[in-house]
Simulated scan of single mutants.
Amino acid sequence: MELDKIEKLVERYFEATTTVVEEEILREYFSREDIPVHLEQYAPMFQYFTVAKEERYTKKLALTRKPKGMVRNLYKWASVAAVAVFFIGFYFYNPSSKPASLADEYTPEEIASAQEALSLLAINFNKGTEQLYHLEEFQKNTNKFLTKE
């Protein structure tokens, strides 16, 4: 009877549904010498829990205080200086003015050359779109024949 109870408690322990009292029963049971063979695998775990429960940290901790006044004042003044530098830079920022027209920035020869290159591009682009129109017509006619059954 007790073995069935322990097996059920172990199962509930791994499902995380045991109470503290039930876990204490398991620790006491697995600290004994006469554990059935099929439950021996759990014995080291529960024995470790018993030993670990008794462990205590015994070293002394050195509690040192940080110098609050000096560090805090340094951070305050550094943040004030950063904000001041930001506003001074923003005040004196003078973006270069953009040219009013293309004639102010480029020579008439450069403008004429660019216009010629763009017109050649437009002509070739229109040739390509004409070919696409023919391809579209071909696709429509092909679909007519394919869908006719």
Rank of each mutant, 00 (worst) to 15 (best):
Q41H: 07
L39I: 06
K98D: 08
Q131E: 13
G89M: 00
P36W: 04
F46K: 00
L9V: 01
A117D: 02
M1Y: 10
N94I: 00
E28I: 15
Y75P: 03
W77E: 12
Y106W: 10
Y93W: 03
Y13L: 01
N126I: 10
I25R: 08
I35V: 06
R32T: 09
P99K: 01
T129H: 07
L132F: 15
A81Y: 08
T64M: 11
I123M: 13
F86R: 01
L121A: 13
E116K: 07
K98Q: 11
R56G: 01
E55L: 15
K140R: 13
N126K: 11
R56N: 03
T58G: 11
A62D: 12
K76L: 09
S96E: 01
S97P: 06
A81G: 12
S96H: 00
T18N: 03
K68C: 05
M70Y: 10
E28V: 15
N141V: 07
K59F: 10
K140M: 09
K127I: 05
P67L: 13
K53G: 06
A122Q: 09
A112E: 14
P44K: 04
K76P: 00
D34V: 04
V21E: 15
A16N: 15
F87S: 09
V85D: 03
E11I: 12
S101G: 05
E54S: 13
T107W: 02
S31M: 13
E116M: 05
F125R: 08
A103V: 04
K98L: 12
V71S: 07
Y29S: 01
R27A: 06
L118P: 02
V71L: 11
V20Y: 03
E24S: 12
A117M: 02
N73R: 11
F49M: 15
E137K: 11
F14Y: 14
F145V: 12
P108A: 03
L102T: 09
I35T: 02
T19L: 05
R32K: 14
K59C: 08
K98C: 04
K140W: 09
K98E: 11
E136R: 13
P108F: 02
Q47P: 05
Y48K: 05
E7K: 15
A78T: 06
G128F: 13
E110N: 03
K68T: 08
A43G: 04
D34A: 06
Q41Y: 10
E22I: 03
F46N: 01
E28Q: 15
L121D: 10
G89V: 00
L120E: 15
T18W: 00
A112M: 10
K68N: 08
E33S: 09
I25Q: 09
K53A: 09
L9Q: 02
A100W: 01
L74A: 09
P67S: 14
P36H: 06
Q131F: 13
F87E: 05
Q47H: 06
S101A: 07
K148D: 08
A117S: 03
R72T: 14
L3D: 07
P36R: 06
A122K: 07
K53P: 01
V20E: 07
V37F: 06
A112R: 13
F92Y: 02
A81P: 04
